[in-house]
């Protein structure tokens, strides 16, 4: 473990450089440049807000009447965006970097780090704008805001562990890549992001707990839309699951890392 960390530190300029380059290339030949980083999520939020705010207004009484639903929506959408970006990009990272892996020797673990850093960069940009909006409209949640840090940490560990497992498997069994896109679609709608769990029929509501993302999303929504500290005990299962996935992913990675180059 220590040698991996040392190797990663030695390659830090590669990691930082890669994140920079990915950001540059995305907006290299465009007129609007980096503003697209904001426009995309903004557009998505606007669409959802317009369609769903009418449906949802009655169901979320405790919220600020003007922006309540938008904030509730953003809390879930933006953090879900971080989760799905990490998991998706990690799942294809070995195949994407096949050329590099075959030509130059470097610590393979740099790739997950680059994926997380890149996704975090995009997240902070849009989330930063969101926080500014909260401050300006007077809806800043106050002290519970700091609870975001541990909850985000759990989210990230969950995402990247899942991503590494999928990434390694995808090299050998390409169905994984195809299947995960579909799974993510269903997963999004099975999580109370756009809606609140209370609109579901009472028979279904207990089943939501089985979805690890539910507790995370509920925590985010609580912090940002209602200014409430998260219910830490509800986060325990997903934290344990993340830790377990983390260990599993590192083991799988170490086992199969050598073979990956032969298959891509």
């Amino acid at each position: 473990m220590k040698s991996t960390l040392q190797a990663l530190w030695a390659y830090r300029s590669f990691i930082i450089g890669s994140v920079q380059r990915e950001f540059q290339v995305r907006y290299q030949k465009s007129l609007l440049g980096a503003t697209w980083a904001i426009l995309n999520p903004l557009a998505m939020i606007m669409v959802y807000t317009v369609i769903f705010s009418q449906i949802m207004r009655a169901r979320l009484p405790g919220l600020d009447p003007t922006f309540g639903y938008s904030i509730y929506l953003c809390a879930g959408l933006l953090t879900w965006g971080l989760f799905s970006e990490i998991a998706n990009r990690a799942q294809s990272m070995f195949i994407e970097h096949a050329n590099l892996l075959k030509k130059i020797n470097f610590p393979r673990f740099c790739l997950p780090i680059i994926v997380v850093s890149s996704a975090l960069l995009n997240f902070f940009i849009i989330f930063g704008i969101f926080v500014i909006f909260l401050l300006v409209s007077g809806n800043f949640p106050g002290w519970p805001f700091v609870a975001l840090v541990p909850v985000l940490a759990v989210l990230i560990i969950f995402a990247i562990s899942l991503g590494i497992i999928l990434g390694v498997l995808n090299v050998f069994f390409r169905d994984v890549g195809q299947g995960f896109g579909i799974i993510l679609q269903f997963w999004f709608w099975l999580t109370p992001i756009v809606y609140s769990a209370s609109i579901l029929p009472t028979g279904l509501q207990p089943w939501m707990v089985l979805n690890p993302m539910t507790s995370l999303m509920t925590a985010f929504q609580g912090i940002l839309a209602e200014g409430r500290w998260p219910d830490w005990s509800s986060l325990l299962p997903v934290t344990l699951l993340s830790a377990g996935l983390c260990v599993l992913s590192l083991r799988l990675f170490r086992q199969r890392a050598g073979e990956i180059v032969d298959e891509i």
Binding site: A10, Y11, S13, F14, G17, S18, R21, Q24, V25, Q28, N99, L100, L101, K102, K103, I104, F106
Partner: peptide, 25 residues
């Protein structure tokens, strides 16, 4: 190509390859 990425410019690829070879920024 030493793993050059086709969408990066030559200069960006030099930085990438150089970093991988162990040169600092």
């Amino acid at each position: 190509g030493m793993g050059f990425h086709p969408d990066f410019t030559g200069r960006q690829n030099v930085y990438m390859a150089g970093q991988l070879l162990g040169y600092g920024m």
